[in-house]
């Protein structure tokens, strides 16, 4: 059995230049530590490997039971020059939510 980020958290993506930031916010405080352990930058990099070159940084926001992932070189050069349909990468939060993690213990 695996669990998806979607099952434990909500997320929203924003853009600045060619960098995407995606928040991951736990519904319940008790899942923060699980995500801290399992939702590593390596896992996120794997999920975004076809969309972003990286690097990726993860900032913990324990007070907000959240994380902020900052993914560089993710938006086709940035909103002003990108050829993508979703130039802001607003839909990227859904790539994050679909990441599968090992079973919740």
């Amino acid at each position: 059995m695996t669990v998806r980020v979607y099952d434990l958290a909500h997320a929203r993506a924003g853009d600045k230049g060619n960098t995407s930031n995606i928040s991951v916010i736990c519904y319940e405080t008790k899942h923060w530590e699980f995500l801290e352990r399992e939702l590593t930058t390596q896992r996120v990099a794997q999920a975004f490997r076809h969309l972003a070159k990286g690097p990726i940084k993860r900032y913990p926001l324990r007070n907000l039971k959240a994380f902020n992932f900052v993914i560089e070189n993710a938006l086709g050069g940035g909103v002003t020059v990108s050829l993508a349909q979703d130039i802001h990468g607003k839909s990227y939060s859904n790539v994050m939510l679909a990441i599968e993690l090992p079973n919740l213990k």
Partner: peptide, 16 residues
């Protein structure tokens, strides 16, 4: 709190 948390982190990089 959920809607405000999403917006608080929105388009922020280093939260410090």
């Amino acid at each position: 709190v959920m809607t405000c948390t999403e917006q608080l982190i929105y388009e922020i990089h280093d939260p410090t």
